[in-house]
Each structure stands twice: as structure tokens, then as C-alpha cells.
Design a protein around this nucleic acid. Structure first.
Lengths: 226, 226
DNA sequence: GAATACGAAATCGTATACGAAGGCTAGGGT
DNA sequence: ACCCTAGCCTTCGTATACGATTTCGTATTC
């Protein structure tokens, strides 16, 4: 399955405690054990992971650079997120980056990829009845992964991954708030796949992909405004 | 003047040695004191800056997450760059991000900003005669800073900054290699400003801005191919 | 009773120390 | 002459220690 959660290009320093701490904290943030606003205490984490504080500090620095948490001098680190504005910014950024990634990826997508994507989208459609936001969001992530994962530019790919990670960390899960959006989303997925199959103009693919995400954002905004 | 070198939203931990090390190493990379491939030795840097290795390690981690250098376990850190492929990736990414940033920024640009941009572009034009690639590149950076600095989405803005920093760190300076490109560039700047002044469709501004950078990249590729 | 000032506890930031891993050089063997 | 091996030197990775800073509670005063 497509790996979306991770990473900078090649895992740096596998086996080091620093790396271990990085992975551990990151996954705890993403799976929600450390929810937004959570206060990360160095000594406590270090104790948890049976390491000293030094590697933990390094891990937190890396996560800070990725935007998953914020540091304050002499205060400590807190998990980022929560702020609706932040959500908006992240979605907008992701719409741009993911659109580009999908367009660049499109020419390299093989029929087998499309088949996988379609299978996932079918699952999503079935999921619409007894609606499970979490499962739906997960499938959504898998679906898009298939479409952009072939992007030949590793920087862009990395940025997409980071964007998804940020979204996951603020577990807004959108569809939890705007279940009505899910239906449209599935249809737009189908349209997007058609374009890719037909070797459509990359600009068009980029436009559609970007709009797809913007629409989700708009739905969220319309919802939260009322 | 527009600050382009810096970084993550608000400077984290001002006054800390870690921050000091971060700024120092980053500027040395960008100004070329540490050129690509340079081997960064912790103890040596720490000694240079009169601090211990711990803050230096943290600084290097942050720079790693920004892509300015790479880490290898038990080996050390080396300044990234050099690789022409890397240059290509960075330019492509920046074309997308900066295009979006410029488009988002455009509606917020005031006549005074345009005036500043135009003044810089005039300097660039004058610079064409007794051509100085370094100065030209610097002006180019300033020019674009004016155009995208109003972008209301801080994430995107941050990505643009990082892209510029990466480019600066590999000091390819493009115009050094493709002086012929400089002339077109100045003209395209003028066209871009006209669009912004006329409150053109943001999509159009984004397209033009992206093409502007792509053209520079293409010129570089055409040059290096022969 | 509320506000302020003082002090203790918690937590961070950094230095120092030491063990481990990689690389280089010299010496011996084939 | 060349390759392989042993040992040293460099440099990294992490633990521990300690001073600095913030926070929170308590007591004292108006």
C-alpha cells in the first residue's frame, strides 16, 4: 500500500535513537495520541522511550521544521494544529502542491495504477452508506497516493507527504464535519481518473485536481461559517 | 529590503545558541563559505562558534529538514547541492510554489510595491550592459520578493523562501551560465507587472509567473545540453 | 478579600564526558 | 608488487550533570 505518512527522502540515520524518537513522536502526533495543543515534555518522552533527552530534542527539532509542532524558548514544544486558520492554509498549500504532483505524475501512471485507484474509489462509494469518516478519510488518502506517487520530482512529492501528514495530525478529517462532501468527492475522483486515462493536458489535470481539494476546503468553510 | 534568506514563521528561540548556530551555518551555506559537498564537522563548527556540539547538532538537524544538507549516520553532514538534477527539481518546485505565491499576493499589491519592483527591474536592465551575474541574480531575487511577499498564506511563503535559499546555496546563479536569458527575463518582469497592475485573473498571473521561471530553467537545460 | 512578592518545583538549554563506528595508515603475508 | 589485516585517529551518538528560566503556590500586606 502507498506509504503516505513518512518522510524525508531517505530515512536518515536508521537505528539511531534520535531516529527512533522522531518516528515515535511523529506517529503519536499523527495517530492522535498527542493531540493538538499537547505539551511535549522532553524528560517525559525521553523516559518513555528509554533514551536521554538529547536525541529527543533533535527529533523535536526535525518535527518543528516540518511544522508538526512549535517550539518556544525555555517553554517547550506543543503539538501544532487546532487553529482553523492553520487548517485553511495547509489545505490551500496542499491543493497547489498536490495538483502539481498529480499532473506531473499523470503521464507515468499505468493502467494497473488506475485499476487500483478505481478499486479504492469503489470502496469509498460503498462506504457512503454506513458512513465512517475515519475509514473514508483513510481511503481518500490511499486513493490520492496512487495518483501522485509517480511524481518524478522528489521535492514536490516530499511536500505532498508533509501536507498530508499535517492534515492527519490535525485530524480534522473534514468528512467528519462535512459528510455531504463525501458524495461529490467520489464523483470527482472518477472524473479525475478519466482525464488521466485519456492522457489529458497536464494543465487540465492540475486544474481539476486543485479544484477537487479546494472544493473540500470550501465545503468546510461553508459548514463552519454557519 | 525584502528578507528572503530566512525561514520558519517566527524565529524560534531567539538568543539561544542553537538558533545562533542555525543562522550562522545557514548563512555560510548560502553565501558559499560552505560550498556544496563541504563536510561539516560538528566539533569544528562548535569550536568556531564558541559553543558545544549539542546546539550545533540541533541546528544541523533543522537544516537537514530544510534540505540544505544531508546527514549520514556515524559519518556526518555534508552540504547538499551540486547535482544538476537537484537544481532541476528545485527550480521546478519553485516555479510552482512561487507562481502560486505571486498569484495569491497579486491582489494585495499596492502601487508603491509595483513602483519598487519597477525600480529594481530598471536597475536590472541597466545591469545588462556591463553584466554582473551575481548582482543581477541578487536584484532578481529582490524583484520577485516584492511580488510574492504579500502572499497571505504563510506556509506557501515559507516554501518560496526555502526554495530561494536552496537555489542560493547551490549558487548556480543561472545567469552566470546563461547570460542571454537575462534580457528576456527583464522583459517578462515588465509583462508580469502589467498583469498585476491591471488586476488580471490570478490564474493568468500564476501561469505567467510559472512560465517565467520555467523559461529560465529551459534556458539552463538547453545550455548545459550542448 | 485581593494583590503582590517571594520561593520552590518543574523544565529547558548547554557543557562535558565517554563509548562506538568509520576511515586511514602501516606492516606483514602471499 | 599487491592485498589483506590490525590498530590508531577522527568523528559521531548519547548519557549525565548543572546552571538558567519559567511557572505555580503560598504567605504577607494593604
Amino acid at each position: 500500500m502507498a506509504e503516505v505518512v513518512s518522510t524525508t527522502p531517505s530515512t536518515p540515520a536508521a537505528g539511531s535513537k534520535s531516529e527512533h524518537a522522531y518516528v515515535a513522536v511523529k506517529s503519536r502526533i499523527i495517530d492522535g495520541s498527542y493531540s493538538p495543543g499537547y505539551r511535549l515534555v522532553l524528560a517525559q518522552i525521553a523516559d518513555d522511550l528509554r533514551v536521554s533527552v538529547v536525541p529527543v530534542r533533535e527529533a523535536l527539532r526535525r518535527l518543528e521544521a516540518e511544522g508538526l509542532l512549535t517550539f518556544e524558548r525555555n517553554i517547550g514544544a506543543t503539538v501544532a494544529g487546532i487553529d482553523p486558520t492553520e487548517y485553511l492554509y495547509t489545505m490551500q498549500t496542499l491543493s497547489i502542491i498536490e495538483g502539481a504532483a498529480t499532473a506531473l505524475s499523470a503521464p507515468l501512471i499505468k493502467p494497473a495504477d488506475i485499476a487500483r485507484a478505481r478499486a479504492i474509489n469503489t470502496e469509498m462509494r460503498e462506504c457512503l452508506d454506513h458512513f465512517d469518516p475515519v475509514r473514508f478519510t483513510r481511503l481518500n488518502q490511499d486513493f490520492h497516493s496512487v495518483l501522485f506517487e509517480n511524481c518524478p520530482n522528489p521535492h514536490i512529492l516530499d511536500l505532498v507527504h508533509r501536507g498530508w501528514a499535517r492534515l492527519a495530525s490535525m485530524r480534522s478529517s473534514t468528512f467528519r464535519f462535512v459528510p455531504g462532501r463525501a458524495h461529490n468527492s467520489v464523483d470527482e475522483h472518477e472524473a479525475l481518473m478519466r482525464l488521466i486515462e485519456a492522457d489529458a493536458d497536464p494543465d487540465e489535470i492540475e486544474r481539476v485536481s486543485r479544484l477537487h481539494r479546494s472544493a473540500t476546503l470550501d465545503a468546510y468553510l461553508a459548514q463552519s461559517k454557519q
